[in-house]
C-alpha cells in the first residue's frame, strides 16, 4: 500500500436547530505515504471538520476511512486510543490549544504519559530531545505557555504531536494565527520534520501561498464538497473549476504595477443546511445553467490525477472529451 490514508465518500452532518447541516458531504481522497495533502477553501467550507472527522474527533455520519491499509471507519474506544498513537493533530490557535496550567515540559510529556511510553529520567530526556527537535531552548523547560510568543507555543504543539512518533498528522491551520515571519519558520520546521520522520500531513489552510509551499497535492473544498483536487503545481497553472479560478484570482500579487484580471464571485452562498440536489456553487457561478440547479456534479478525472466536480468543466476550459 503506498497510500497511507484513503477516504471514501466521507460524510459528516451536524444536527442544528434549523436542520441537518452538511458540513462534509461525500468527500473522497487519498494521501500517499510521506506526502502532504493541502486542503483549501473559504471559512466554513468544512475543511476543519473534515480533518477532525478523519482522526475521529468528530464521529462521521457515513463513509469509509482506510488508514495504513486498515479500515478504521468504525473503531471502539480501545482501538481508537491505539490509533491515536499514529494520528495526531496540530491545532490552529497556539494560544488556546495548550492547557494554561501546565508547564512546557508537562505539556510535551503529556502524550508520553498517556501512552506510558516512559517515566522518570527517561521521560525527562525524551522531553528535552523533543524540545531540541522543534527548536525550543531548554531553558524554557519550566516555563508556562502564557510566557511564550505564538511561534514558540506552536512549537510546543508540534512537539506534542511528534511525541508519539505518529505516521500521520492533521495540521489544522497551524500557521494562520502567527506572524508572517514566524509562519515561514514553522512551515520550514514542519517540512524538515516531515523529511526526517517520513510524516504524512493533511494540511488545512486558507492561505494559498502557504499551501503551495508545503503541499504535494491540493484539494479545494466548497461548502463541504470537493470541487477540485490535483497536484499542487498543476492547480496554479491549470485550474478547471470556476470556483478554483476565482479563489486563486483572489490571491494578492506582491507587485504594485501588475494588474491582473480578476474573476470575482458574486451572489449568495448556498445554505449548507439541507442543500438540495444541485451544484452548490451554482448560485454564484457565472456558467451555471439548468443542469447545475438540478443535479449534483460528480467528480471526474479530467486528466490523470486531476479531479474536478463540475458539469461544464469541458466547455468552460475548451477541453475535449477524454483528453
Amino acid at each position: 500500500m503506498s497510500n497511507l490514508l484513503e477516504v471514501k465518500n466521507l460524510k459528516k452532518y451536524f444536527k442544528t436547530n434549523r436542520g441537518l447541516l452538511h458540513a462534509v458531504d461525500d468527500v473522497s481522497f487519498t494521501i500517499p505515504r510521506g506526502k502532504t495533502l493541502g486542503i483549501v477553501g473559504e471559512s466554513g467550507c468544512g475543511k476543519s471538520t473534515l480533518g477532525r472527522t478523519v482522526i475521529h474527533l468528530h464521529e462521521k455520519t457515513s463513509g469509509q476511512i482506510l488508514f495504513d491499509g486498515k479500515d478504521i471507519s468504525d473503531v471502539d474506544k480501545h482501538q481508537l486510543k491505539a490509533l491515536r498513537e499514529d494520528m495526531q493533530m496540530i491545532f490552529q490557535d497556539p494560544f488556546s490549544s495548550l492547557n494554561p496550567r501546565m508547564s512546557v515540559s508537562q505539556l510535551i510529556a503529556e502524550p508520553l504519559l498517556i501512552y506510558k511510553k516512559c517515566s522518570g529520567k527517561e521521560l525527562e530526556q525524551t522531553v528535552m530531545q523533543l524540545m531540541d527537535t522543534v527548536g525550543l531552548a531548554q531553558r524554557l523547560y519550566n516555563s508556562y505557555p502564557h510566557e511564550l510568543d505564538g511561534g514558540r507555543r506552536q512549537r510546543i504543539g508540534i512537539a506534542r504531536a511528534l511525541a508519539l512518533s505518529p505516521k500521520f498528522i492533521v495540521c489544522d491551520e497551524p500557521v494562520s494565527a502567527l506572524d508572517v515571519s514566524i509562519q515561514a519558520q514553522i512551515i520550514n520546521l514542519m517540512q524538515d520534520l516531515q523529511e526526517e520522520h517520513q510524516l504524512t500531513y493533511m494540511f488545512i489552510t486558507h492561505d494559498m501561498s502557504v499551501v503551495r509551499h508545503i503541499s504535494d497535492d491540493i484539494m479545494v473544498m466548497y461548502l463541504g464538497m470537493m470541487v477540485e483536487c490535483c497536484d499542487s503545481e498543476e492547480i496554479f497553472h491549470n485550474r478547471f473549476h470556476p470556483y478554483t479560478k476565482a479563489l486563486l484570482d483572489a490571491v494578492p500579487i506582491p507587485q504594485v504595477r501588475e494588474k491582473k484580471e480578476r474573476r470575482l464571485i458574486k451572489g449568495e452562498i448556498t445554505s449548507p443546511i439541507h442543500p438540495g440536489d444541485e451544484c452548490r456553487f451554482a448560485k454564484r457561478c457565472p456558467y451555471a445553467d439548468q443542469i447545475c440547479f438540478e443535479k449534483t456534479p460528480v467528480s471526474e478525472e479530467i486528466c490523470p490525477g486531476h479531479f474536478v466536480s463540475c458539469h461544464h468543466v469541458r466547455e468552460i476550459n475548451h477541453l475535449q472529451e477524454n483528453k
Binding site: 491545532f91 490557535d93 490549544s97 495548550l98 492547557n99 503529556e110 502524550p111 498517556i114 506534542r160
Partner: peptide, 12 residues
C-alpha cells in the same frame, strides 16, 4: 481547544 487537543492526543 486544549481539552479537544487532549482528546486528540488520546487522553481518557
Amino acid at each position: 481547544e486544549y481539552v479537544e487537543a487532549a482528546r486528540a492526543t488520546g487522553a481518557s
